Amino acid sequence: TEVDLHLGDITIKLKDVSEEIVKRAKELFKNGWSAEFVKKWIEEAVK
């Protein structure tokens, strides 16, 4: 499945990412993480 994760003005296309990771990524962004950091976190999380 593909998900578009909207973080501010940046959209990250996610492939084969669990709902849990998407939820967590949104929380991290809301908590002040930059979109770049969230993207890196996701990449690490799906390895």
Rank of each mutant, 00 (worst) to 15 (best):
S18Y: 04
E2D: 12
A45Q: 15
E27Q: 12
T1F: 13
V17L: 06
K39H: 08
I12M: 06
T1C: 13
L5N: 03
L28Y: 08
E19K: 08
D9H: 12
G32S: 02
K40C: 13
D9W: 04
D4S: 12
D16K: 04
E44D: 12
I42V: 09
I10G: 03
V17A: 06
D9Y: 06
V38K: 00
F37I: 13
E36L: 08
V46Q: 09
G8C: 03
E43D: 09
I12F: 04
K39W: 08
D16W: 09
A35G: 08
K26E: 13
L14D: 02
N31S: 12
K13T: 14
L28H: 06
T11I: 15
E44H: 10
F37G: 13
K30S: 13
D16F: 07
F37A: 15
V3M: 12
K13S: 13
E20Q: 09
A45W: 09
K15D: 08
W33A: 15
S34H: 06
K26G: 07
A45M: 15
K15V: 14
A35R: 03
V38W: 01
K30E: 14
K15G: 09
V38Q: 00
I12V: 08
L7T: 01
L5P: 02
K39M: 15
A25D: 00
K47H: 12
E19L: 11
H6P: 06
W33V: 09
L5F: 06
K30R: 13
L28N: 02
D9T: 10
I42L: 11
V22W: 06
L14Q: 01
A45S: 08
L14G: 02
G32A: 02
T1I: 12
F37Y: 15
K13I: 12
D4L: 15
V17Y: 05
K30F: 11
D9V: 07
E44V: 06
I12Y: 04
K30H: 13
E20R: 09
K26S: 10
D16M: 04
W41H: 01
K39R: 15
K15A: 09
E19S: 07
I10A: 07
K15Q: 11
K30M: 15
K23N: 14
D9L: 10
F29T: 02
I42C: 04
A45D: 02
L5G: 02
I10P: 02
I10K: 05
A35Y: 06
K23A: 14
S18K: 09
V3K: 07
F29W: 10
W33G: 06
K39A: 12
V22R: 05
V22K: 04
L28W: 04
H6S: 10
V38L: 06
V17N: 01
D4R: 05
L5D: 02
D16I: 03
F37R: 15
K13R: 10
T11A: 07
V3T: 11
K30G: 11
L28G: 03
I42R: 00
T11W: 09
A25I: 04
I42K: 00
V3D: 07
L28E: 01
K40E: 13
K47R: 13
F29K: 01
E2I: 13
L7Y: 03
K15L: 12
I42D: 00
K13C: 15
R24T: 13
L5M: 06
E36W: 05
E44P: 00
K47S: 14
F37T: 13
E2F: 14
K40V: 11
K13G: 08
E36H: 07
W41I: 02
A45I: 10
T1Y: 12
D9P: 10
A25F: 03
N31I: 10
K47N: 12
G32W: 02
K13A: 13
V17I: 09
W33S: 10
E19N: 10
T1K: 15
A25C: 03
F37L: 13
A35D: 03
V22M: 08
V17P: 04
L5Y: 02
I12H: 03
V22D: 00
R24A: 12
S34G: 09
E20D: 13
R24M: 14
I42M: 04
V22H: 04
G8P: 02
V17C: 04
E20H: 10
T1M: 14
K47Q: 14
E44K: 05
E20F: 09
I42E: 00
L7E: 02
R24F: 12
L5H: 02
K15T: 15
T11V: 15
E2R: 09
S34E: 06
N31A: 12
D4Q: 13
E27H: 08
F29V: 05
F37W: 14
D16L: 04
W33N: 09
E36I: 07
L14H: 03
K23F: 11
I42N: 00
K26L: 15
W33H: 15
E43F: 08
V3W: 12
L28R: 02
G32T: 02
A25Y: 01
E43K: 06
I12P: 01
V22F: 06
F29Y: 14
H6Q: 15
K39E: 09
I42T: 02
K23Y: 11
L7W: 06
L14N: 02
W41N: 00
I21H: 03
T11Q: 05
W33L: 12
V46M: 13
G32R: 01
T1G: 13
V46F: 05
W41E: 00
K26T: 10
A35E: 05
W33I: 07
A45L: 08
K39P: 00
V22L: 12
R24N: 10
W33T: 06
L14A: 03
S18M: 06
E36F: 05
E43L: 09
K40R: 10
V46N: 06
T11E: 05
E27M: 09
T1H: 13
R24V: 08
K23S: 11
F29P: 00
D4C: 15
W33F: 14
I42A: 03
L7V: 04
K13D: 09
F29N: 01
K13E: 08
K40A: 15
D16V: 04
A45T: 13
R24G: 11
A35K: 04
L14F: 06
W41P: 00
V38C: 07
S34V: 05
K39G: 07
A25T: 01
S34M: 06
G8V: 03
E43W: 07
I12W: 02
G8L: 04
I42W: 01
V3P: 05
D9K: 07
S34I: 06
K26R: 11
E44N: 08
K23C: 11
E43Q: 09
F29S: 02
V17H: 03
D9A: 10
W33M: 14
D16N: 12
A35P: 09
L5V: 07
A45R: 06
K39F: 10
V22A: 05
I10F: 13
E20K: 07
E43I: 11
F37N: 14
E19A: 10
S18Q: 06
V38T: 03
I21G: 00
I10Q: 10
A35T: 07
K13Y: 12
K26Q: 11
K15W: 14
E19H: 10
V46T: 11
S18H: 08
E27A: 06
E44M: 05
L7I: 08
V22P: 01
F29H: 05
A25E: 00
K13V: 13
F29E: 01
T11M: 06
W41F: 10
E2W: 15
K26N: 11
V46R: 06
K47L: 14
K30T: 13
N31P: 01
L14W: 04
A25N: 00
K23M: 12
E2M: 15
S34K: 06
W41L: 02
K23I: 12
V17F: 04
V38G: 00
E36D: 11
G8Q: 03
R24K: 15
G32I: 01
V38I: 14
T11D: 04
E44S: 05
E19C: 07
V46K: 07
F29I: 07
V38F: 01
K47G: 12
A45Y: 09
D16E: 09
K39N: 05
K23G: 07
S34A: 09
K13P: 12
H6W: 09
G32E: 01
L7P: 01
D16T: 03
L5E: 03
T11S: 10
N31K: 11
H6D: 11
A45F: 08
T11Y: 07
G32Y: 02
K23R: 12
D4M: 14
V46W: 05
K15Y: 14
W41Q: 00
I21D: 02
G32Q: 02
L14P: 01
W41R: 00
E27F: 07
D4Y: 15
I12G: 02
I10D: 06
K13W: 10
E20N: 09
I21V: 08
I10M: 13
I21W: 04
V17D: 01
G8D: 06
H6M: 12
S18R: 06
I10L: 11
F29C: 03
K15F: 14
I10T: 12
F37D: 14
L5W: 05
D9F: 06
H6T: 15
H6C: 08
V3R: 07
L14I: 11
K39V: 14
D16Q: 06
V22N: 01
E43M: 13
K47P: 04
E27Y: 09
E43S: 07
D16G: 15
L28A: 03
A35Q: 04
S34N: 11
E19R: 08
L7C: 05
K26F: 10
K13L: 14
K47C: 06
K40Y: 10
E44L: 07
L7D: 02
E19D: 13
V3N: 08
H6L: 10
A25K: 00
L14T: 03
E44F: 07
W41T: 00
V38Y: 00
L14Y: 05
E36N: 07
A25Q: 00
E36R: 03
D16A: 05
E20Y: 10
E27D: 10
K39Y: 07
E36Y: 05
N31V: 07
S18F: 05
W33D: 04
K23P: 00
W41S: 00
L7M: 07
D4I: 15
E27G: 03
E43A: 08
K23L: 14
